[in-house]
């Protein structure tokens, strides 16, 4: 019950508006995989979590969504901050996560460690937020799939060498799989399980 986020009329208007704007950006991103979407309003960075990652969690996580955070970020003020503002339980096991935040791609567990859903309920799967230094379009891997008119290109700095192979393996599980948001400072890109990648 601790730290239930305020909800309802008194003083909640701003919170409601900010959450709505972040959600619409996330929806725009996941409906257009590979599209770099700038968040209009972002909170401050907390610990090693960048503003875009914090914004996504603040808008979407709550007491119903167990959250996995990487060990480095867990030693910062981030877990307490999210527990207080979102009320979300922080879990140690990636397999229990509804949301996961990896602040450093180098130490992110294999994507297959997170829940991918079940054949009857493929939605019971994790959403991973992976922080990157810099997102850029035009060069990099080629993405196709639902939400993409023909094809699109995307590059992100400092991803582990086998990252895109893991994304392809995740896509091969479709309709199972996890959904990923890459987040640089104030921008996000979605890589839902439906996206095909060539690299």
């Amino acid at each position: 019950m601790a730290g239930q986020p305020p909800s309802g009329p008194p003083g909640a208007a701003d919170l409601a508006t900010v959450s709505q704007a972040v959600f619409r950006s996330a929806l725009d991103a996941i409906a257009h995989p590979g599209k770099i979407v700038a968040l209009s309003a972002v909170p401050e960075a907390i610990g090693c979590a960048n503003p875009a990652a914090v914004a996504l969690l603040m808008a979407l996580a709550d007491s119903d969504t167990p959250l996995w955070i990487d060990p480095t970020a867990r030693t910062t003020a981030l877990p307490d901050h999210l527990r207080f503002h979102c009320g979300c339980p922080v879990v140690d096991d990636p397999a229990l996560a509804a949301f996961a935040l990896a602040t450093d791609p180098a130490t992110c567990p294999p994507l297959s460690d997170f829940p991918v859903g079940t054949p009857e309920y493929p939605d019971r799967s994790a959403t991973l937020i992976l922080q990157v230094d810099q997102l850029s379009a035009g060069r990099g891997v080629r993405l196709t799939g639902p939400g993409i008119e023909t094809q699109t290109s995307l590059a992100a700095s400092a991803l582990p060498p086998d990252f895109w192979a893991q994304v392809a393996a995740n896509n091969a599980l479709f309709p199972l799989g996890i959904d990923i948001f890459l987040a640089d400072d104030r921008r996000i890109v979605a890589l839902p399980r439906s996206v095909s990648v060539e690299f």
Binding site: A59, L60, T127, F174, R193
Partner: peptide
């Protein structure tokens, strides 16, 4: 929030 999470999954599948 619960609805928004469901919508994001819906778009992904």
């Amino acid at each position: 929030r619960a609805l928004r999470r469901a919508l994001l999954k819906a778009v992904a599948i």
